[in-house]
Design a protein around this nucleic acid. Sequence first.
DNA 1: TCAAAAGTGTTAACCATACACCCATGC
DNA 2: GCATGGGTGTATGGTTAACACTTTTGA
Lengths: 229, 229
Amino acid sequence: MTFTYPYPHPAVTVDAVVFGFDESDLKVLLIQRSQEPFKDRWALPGGFVEINEDLETAARRELQEETGISRLFLEQLYTFGSPNRDPRERVISVAYYALVKLIDHHIQAASDAMNVAWFPLTDLPPLAFDHEHVLEVACKRLKGKIRYEPIGFELLPEKFPLSELQRLYETVLEKPLDKRNFRKKILSMDFLIDTQEIQQDVAHRAAKLYRFDPQAYQRLRDQGLNFEI
Amino acid sequence: MTFTYPYPHPAVTVDAVVFGFDESDLKVLLIQRSQEPFKDRWALPGGFVEINEDLETAARRELQEETGISRLFLEQLYTFGSPNRDPRERVISVAYYALVKLIDHHIQAASDAMNVAWFPLTDLPPLAFDHEHVLEVACKRLKGKIRYEPIGFELLPEKFPLSELQRLYETVLEKPLDKRNFRKKILSMDFLIDTQEIQQDVAHRAAKLYRFDPQAYQRLRDQGLNFEI
DNA sequence: TCAAAAGTGTTAACCATACACCCATGC
DNA sequence: GCATGGGTGTATGGTTAACACTTTTGA
């Protein structure tokens, strides 16, 4: 079956930059291409948008299909459309970025023939297409957005110690933060709940575990609070 | 001539939300559709992306063709792709927003059969497609971005009094600002140049005219200045 | 001389920053 | 008992916010 149009139409894809955070590393999820073009190169997960499918739905479907990940924070990033991005035909790609809690989401390749893996941002392989550029734009967005919206919690487990939150911010923002000031600030905002639990199996004093309360955040937001780190 | 593909491709358009500022009103540029669908309704300027054309280039071309406006601040806004945005076929629209200096840009309809006009944001006609939604997203972006990037100057004439700049900020942010604090803050940033000229033909004390110096801004930026109103 | 907008400083409250030691735990 | 990270308070300087009157000009 073929589809014909009176004037040429580009293909439209979605690509996703999926970030994960692990101890002290920001990581990104890549899949290894099994076909030309760029066979064997690593690439952002993604694929063609179906003709009756919403863009975000397409991004979620592709992630589910290629990596097994579902139910994650996903937001549109930018649309890339230079004429020669793809050697096969004109392809316009609507890129999304996503944040996942690494421990909750065990990735699985779509098939044995396909590789899926997390790569630290500091040690990436060469990427297919213009995906290095897409990734760069995603990093900038994350770095900008994490400072004034509480999206960092999407990268942490449900319950986390403050030190881990601080490490996350230090990693993303690429600068050290003062421990006392960081705690003072984040706790003063009153949307972290002390779970009354503490770390288990650590070789030092166990830290309290906190939980982000989105309702409380929303309430404070409505009252004019401005989140900022 | 027709174009055929092994699987269906959506059409891709660009749409532009062009903002202008005039005395005390934020305005948006609309064109009246001369054809179905939505014949006679007002809509955002835009049109189909050509098959070998960059997205931003397409947006600029459409603006030039439909309204005569060129050389303006233009930035990608968001990509809208719900399956039923357009009754004819699947259309994915990459929206841009633009800022122009009203007095420099005299608009002209593409043909006598076509209407082009500025509408105050506070008094808009019903719009075609999902353009009301697009416009809303553009307003939010402008409101967010004007606070921490010096894009407001794109809406003012080359030389302007501080009171006009303040009025612009008050209009976009929808809140009054303190005159003394506003002047202190903006002048302390050292990227406004006193042109040594004053207003002409005003029925009161003439104000000094200032000019935004992008080079100075860039220099300060590199030194770590953070613009914020 | 009146109307209309331009221009100008000070104070008090708040917020950001810098900084160092004791505590709890497991090995 | 030591190594590891957890947890805590204060003082200082800078930034923001609130606030009202005089000046200039043209009509």
